[in-house]
Amino acid sequence: MRSLEHPEPEEMTLDAVLSALADPVRLTIVRQLADGHDDQACIAFELPVSKSTSTHHFRVLREAGVISQHYRGTAILNGLRSDALNQRFPGLLDAILAAR
């Protein structure tokens, strides 16, 4: 089965997380995950960018440790790593989501 790499909480850096969340498209993805449920397919997101650009945004979020991604068949499902983020940077995710 194919798998995608995710950083462990202790490997996550504040610079990478904040950089990932600084982009409005990526912040939209995070907010939708926070408001919805885990295991949202990439096609469930209405983003103002092309498919290849949205793939890039999901990868940046995953590599920073903000989201998790896993395959289910041919679909990639996404989830917010709120527990890992809160473990590494307590209160950061809540503050970012509250700053709407």
Rank of each mutant, 00 (worst) to 15 (best):
M1W: 11
L4M: 12
E5P: 01
P7E: 01
E8N: 04
E11A: 11
V17L: 10
S19D: 15
S19I: 15
A20C: 06
V25D: 00
R26H: 06
R26M: 05
L27T: 08
T28G: 04
V30W: 00
G36Y: 02
H37V: 09
H37R: 12
D38T: 14
D39H: 07
D39E: 09
Q40T: 12
A41D: 06
I43P: 02
I43D: 06
F45W: 04
E46H: 13
L47E: 04
P48W: 04
V49T: 15
V49N: 04
S54P: 01
T55I: 15
T55N: 12
F58Y: 09
R59F: 14
R59T: 15
V60W: 02
E63N: 06
A64E: 01
Y71A: 13
Y71V: 14
Y71L: 11
R72Y: 14
G73M: 13
G73C: 11
A75F: 13
A75W: 10
L77S: 09
L77D: 04
G79I: 06
R81V: 11
S82K: 05
S82W: 04
A84T: 03
L85E: 01
R88G: 02
F89R: 03
F89Q: 04
G91H: 07
G91L: 05
L92P: 01
I96K: 01
L97R: 07
A98H: 14
R100H: 15
